[in-house]
Design a protein around this nucleic acid. Sequence first.
RNA 1: GCCCCCGUAGCUCAGCGGAUAGAGCACCGGCCUCCGGAGCCGGGUGCGCUGGUUCGAGUCCAGCCGGGGGCGCCA
Length: 573
Amino acid sequence: MPELRRVLSDRLRAAFDTLEPGADPVLRGSDRADFQANGALALAKRLGRRPGDVAEQVVATARLGDICSAVWVSGPGFVNLTLADRFVAEQVRAMAADERLGVALAVEPLTVVVDYSAPNVAKEMHVGHLRSTVIGDALVRMLEAVGHRVVRENHVGDWGTPFGMLIEHLVDLDSTGAGPQASIGDLDVFYRQARVSFEADQGFRERSRRRVVLLQSGDPATLALWRSLVDQSMAHFDEVYAKLGVLLDDGDVVGESFYDPMLDQVVADLQALGLLRDSDGARCVFPPGFTNRDGAPLPLIVQKSDGGYGYAATDLAAIRDRVDRLGAQRILYVVGAPQAQHLQMCFAVAQMAGWLPSSVKVEHVAFGSVLGPDRKMFRSRSGDSVKLVDLLDDAVRRAAAAMAQRDGDLDDAERASVATALGVGAIKYADLSTERTRDYVFDWDRMLAFEGDTGPYLQYAHARIRSIFRRGELAPPAPGTVPHLDHPAERALAMALLGFAGAVDDAVDGAAPHRLCGYLYDLAATFTTFYETCPVLRADDGVREGRLVLCDLTARVLAHGLALLGIQAPDRM
RNA sequence: GCCCCCGUAGCUCAGCGGAUAGAGCACCGGCCUCCGGAGCCGGGUGCGCUGGUUCGAGUCCAGCCGGGGGCGCCA
């Protein structure tokens, strides 16, 4: 089933082609018709004709009789289009019969690598990881939904000089008899203690340095200790991912250690290409167009003066690996906005080295910070970053408290599961529903409210529709049932439903989940208006079936749309 | 100092070069014989400033003002 805007656009394009081949109809939504085509104005300018005449000619030429009930020109040359009710009804009927709800598969399926989440071993996940994980998860789900082959990559920080310190601290704990499994209770405490020893104890510092060398050289005993740290951290990550309800698992982890064996080659190849320059003992590439505070060329430091590799080397190795081994055709970096320059430099160097062909699109899917009520970086009262487990537990607790305000007939198990869906959904929706490059203020009351543009409101709208079928003891209408579209509210709902595929496309194209959020909110609002004015269960038999089609399809779109965002839609709440 | 992001209603935010810039929250007024009132309907002299490009600018460009971030061996 082709997307609605596409059908219309193709028909108009044919008409525009007769005036100028390839001219864009510029189809947009309209507040005075179902759609409007604005292409006549730009075209008139190019042709040196009057816009109104061009628009009239498009109207006269376009074959729209079977899908539009009215086509007219207004203003300087806007072509207004009102769809025929019969066509709308047919489109809704087809959409309802479609498992995919009208969402088309990509014409050209791509292998898309999505780099997201990226927590650090031996550190607790905190709010700083929330956005990357949640946005990345939504993008993965949306990309898969339109038929792309998605490779999830969790670029975990599991390598580098800090591990000398961390391993030595583990050794110290082990020597007290605790044993490696039980040694790390709280990751943050563990990390802090290691730091304290490192800063206070000269001997510890020396041992840490030697330990880094052992780790780098593959000493089996050291690797075993390192593995223990990684495994315990992974268990923690898995716990957070499970609470969050994201797709990531152990199989998606491609940590920095994975690229370590490739770094020599990265440097050697850059050297051979003549791109490396020595600067204060460090080996750097100076991509054109980047300058430092003195206006001098800005280096991407690939190898530090002490011989160690910087993260730039790892990032470059990752790009090569993704292009060569994974066959990436598009790479998305779901990474905070502050790293924009670093990533741009890495991309530039990879291109200079020929590792990133122009056929591969790399994109920094940047996002802003989560702010506290004071509009500064969101932190706990004590000034520490907020642990993700605590945040999620808190959300579920608050959702459960809100549910307790009302009397429900849910049993304890379902009540708990709904509270989880509501709490986690609230956090995710709040994160996904604003334009991602902006910072946003974390506000419990706003995100957990059942009114307004929130996750719980959408979940409520969905559950409310499901309850219609429950109360009426009705099965969903048979496929092929024609929707009832006589009332303006019915028609408005039908039009909103038909916008789903376009909303998904828009969200995918712009790596912009908030567009899907906005669509779903509009749909829910349009539904409630319909529901207020159009009785369903009390309607006559023929009308009731036609309205149930709209109800059922709305519920399915809400549930599916929320699923694409990684948010659950319980049937009851 | 240079670079990047942001600046839209009292508050939180949409607005992907098109007509009269929209939502939510808050506030005020309706709708309680209502299929879930966690709802619906109505109420609005706001695009930081100044230029420019364009038939048309909240949107693109330049400069300024304000906020945040980045700017060589941490990742």
